[in-house]
Structures are given as structure tokens and as C-alpha cells.
Design a protein around this nucleic acid. Structure first.
Lengths: 229, 229
DNA sequence: TGTTAAGTTGAGGACGCTCCTCCACTTGAT
DNA sequence: ATCAAGTGGAGGAGCGTCCTCAACTTAACA
């Protein structure tokens, strides 16, 4: 029997050969860099080249782009979660939210793929979706606290946050390579608009409901901009 | 002499045959609709089909996409100019700027192509660029007046306006087909941030300079998102 | 009405891109 | 030394765009 018996229910694979493991890591690292710079529309061929590895090797290790995305971005979203938790420790609710937005945006601005993964349902199906689902209530808490402590106007809602992230990352993408900090300017502007203040009129349109947000994220495909068909 | 003599220096072509002229108009109309819905990345084949005309006919009438874009969008930008002029007639400077932003955005939100043409240098080279150049000082006046009359914070500048348009049109594109008015919510938010007010901190990053804005617009290609190469 | 230049059509070639497979070759583990 | 595991990368399949061209149709004018 060439392959010795494994414990039957065990999900573990036999460990990879050492060179194979080394390549697996190279691919993950390269994918991280390429997805960050070019977004999720990068082809696996591109990642292979950047990793100094043949395309075949990439496909042997990862059945498709989704698996690669899952493997990479679950932890990246976890890093955003960590930022939300750190922010939760700040006593002033407004400060906490503002600081979360800034740090989360700094990550997304440096990583086009992270932005796409957070704003659409397109790519990583299960684990990434789970990570996103864990993140949402953390942000919800930050919003509630900022409002109940009086620092933030009360007519904004949790689903406004993705929209704000989208707007700011859009400027960042627009001004890439010319002024890397420009987005901070518009974050400050929007934060000034979010501040509790007497002179604010009522907002003229409803925020997205949760199900509308789902729908939008499902149909938003930053990769190929064809209509939902 | 089959073709009767024309005035020698005349740049005018002989008038098109009646069916040809009809088709030319059909093509322009179709292009308007397709560019509005799908953006400038729509192919001429797509426009031909939408016009109910063979591809060849489109290519006979318009050497390339650029000519079509020029023919269409010069007048569309002129319509935005008209909005700026109407706004200039409003006595209150803040009201004037706010009303211009809202009406200009309403056009851009309904027309993906207009948005792209206003925010990039990619497609229509000459006439469109001219129209854009005519528009800029009109907006500059609105901004100056809003500030000098005290309605608007003084640390924003003319080049912030394109960035704001970009942000808002990005949300609008994101939420297309789900909540057509959502962008108004974020316009209101940003306008609240632009209002003159004592509690605003200084903005943490410089606006783009004119030449930086040029550079950004030149390299932003909403059509094919390949890096500037 | 006949003649003819202007106009139209849409299949299809050239090109470029991505996904992914396959098999001759190399390498690590035993 | 053996050989299963791993590798590379040319290349096929598929798609989408741009654009041409030769056969056909039609408006204009005598």
C-alpha cells in the first residue's frame, strides 16, 4: 500500500513536500501584492508570474481565484475587525468611530482587493462572507455609541458606513500615485458632516435597508463592469 | 463634371442623402442612450445594434469612438455650463453652489458617459476638453462667491469639486437600480461638511493642484482599468 | 423610368485577453 | 536508486473588441 492509511475521518492532508509548501507561500504572498495593487480582476497568470512560478503550479494549489481570495482575505478582514475592537476601547464614542474609519480606510486604500471584498459579495463566498458578517455588528456598536453619547448626528445609520467607505476609497483610487493622502481630506470633510450639529437639515433620502445593501453588494462587480444581466 | 463645383475653401461637405442623415441621427441617439446606461466602454457594435443599423454604417459615419463622443458630449457639457450659469443668478452664494451641485449631479447620475467625460481626459480630445475648460471658471466663480459671502468654509478649493462629484457619482453607480435617490443623501452630508462652521478642524491634506488634477484625469481610465502603463 | 453614386449590411479576420489543461520534465523523500 | 509529488509554460478554448470589404439596396437626378 503506497499511501499509508490515514485516520479515516481526518480532514488533514499529508503535509506538502517542502518545495511545494515554499511555493504555496510564495503564491499567497504574490497574490496579496497583486490583489492589493491591481484589485481582484488580476488574473492567476499574472499572480503566477509575480510569484516566479508557472501557472500550472498556481492551479494545482488553488482550484480557482475564489479559493485564493478566501485564503487571503479572511485574515485581512480579521485585521479590520481588530481595528474595530481597538476603536471600541476608546472612551469617547465619536473619537472611536472616527479613528476606526480612518484606520480601516488606510488599509483599504493600500489594498484595492480588500476594498472590493468588503464592498461586494462577488468573490470570496463563504469564509469571507462570514468575516464580513462578524465585522458588521462591531461597526454597528461604534455607530450607536457615537450617537448615544451625542457626538454624531442621529439620522445616519449603519448602512451609511459602507457607502462612506465607498466614496472615500473612490477618491483614493482616483488620485492614486499623485497624492496618496488626498482621501484624508475628504474623510475629514465627511466627518464634519457627520458631527452632531444644530444647523444640519434632515437628510433627503433614506439610507439603504439591510436587504437593499445586500442586493447592491451582490450585484456590484468591480471586476467586470457588465450589468447584472 | 458630375459633382458640381464647390466653393474651394469651403469646409462643408455635400449634404448627406436623406436616408444617411436619418441613420446618422439614429446612431447619435442610440449612442446617447447606450453611453448613458453603460458608459463609454460600450462598443460601437453595441451602439449599432441598439440603433438598428449595421456596424459598417457606424464606422462610415464616425471614424472612431472619439468622434462619436465629441459629437455627443460637447453639447452635454454645454448643458452643465447652462446649469452653472443658472446657478450664478441665485443671489445667495451658498444656495447657488448647492443648487449647481445638485443639478449637475442629477445629470451625471443619469448619464454614466457624462460622468466619465467630465472626470477624465480619456476620450473626447479636443472639443470636449474645450467645453470642460469653459466650465471650470464658472464653477470657480460659484465657489468663490459662496466663500466670500460666508456660507462656505474657506479651506476648500476649486479642485475639490471634481473629487466631490466623483465621490457622489460613485455611490450613485454603486446603488444603481436599488435606490435611485440615495446619492442625494450623501450630497446633503457633504454639503453639511462644506458649510461654514466654527467646529470644523483644519483639513488634513492639501487639495490637488491644477496640474495634479490634470495628471489624475489623464491617467484615470474608467473604461479599461489597466494601470497607466 | 433608368442610371449611378451614395449608402448599407453583417459575416468574418485580426487581435488581445483570460481561464485552464496537459504532459514532458525535475525534485524531494524514503 | 526509485518514483510519487511537484513543476513549467506552451497552447487550446472561449470571449470580446475593433474594423474591413464585397455584395447588395436605395435615393437622387436626368
Amino acid at each position: 500500500m503506497p499511501t499509508p492509511a490515514r485516520p479515516p475521518g481526518s480532514a488533514e492532508h499529508r503535509p506538502l513536500r517542502r518545495d511545494a509548501e515554499r511555493n504555496r507561500l510564495r503564491i499567497l504572498e504574490a497574490a496579496g501584492e497583486v490583489f492589493a495593487q491591481r484589485g481582484l480582476e488580476a488574473s492567476l497568470d499574472e499572480i503566477a508570474e509575480h510569484a516566479g512560478v508557472g501557472v500550472g503550479t498556481v492551479y494545482r494549489r488553488f482550484p480557482g481565484k475564489d479559493e485564493l481570495v478566501e485564503a487571503l482575505f479572511e485574515q485581512k478582514i480579521a485585521r479590520v475587525e481588530a481595528l474595530a475592537e481597538q476603536a471600541a476601547a476608546i472612551p469617547d464614542g465619536w473619537q472611536a468611530l472616527a479613528s476606526f474609519l480612518e484606520s480601516a480606510l488606510a488599509l483599504q486604500v493600500a489594498d484595492l482587493g480588500l476594498r472590493q471584498v468588503l464592498l461586494s459579495h462577488g468573490c470570496g463566498r463563504d469564509r469571507v462572507a462570514g468575516a464580513r458578517a462578524r465585522l458588521a455588528p462591531l461597526i454597528g456598536n461604534l455607530v450607536c455609541r457615537a450617537q448615544s453619547q451625542g457626538g454624531m448626528r442621529t439620522d445616519v445609520e449603519l448602512p451609511d458606513i459602507p457607502a462612506i467607505l465607498l466614496m472615500i476609497t473612490s477618491v483614493a483610487e482616483y488620485s492614486r500615485g499623485v497624492n496618496e493622502d488626498l482621501w484624508r481630506r475628504y474623510l475629514a470633510l465627511i466627518l464634519d458632516g457627520l458631527r452632531a450639529g444644530p444647523q444640519h437639515g434632515p437628510l433627503p433620502a433614506d439610507a439603504l435597508s439591510q436587504s437593499q445593501l445586500d442586493q447592491v453588494m451582490r450585484s456590484w462587480d468591480p471586476v467586470r463592469r457588465h450589468p447584472p444581466s
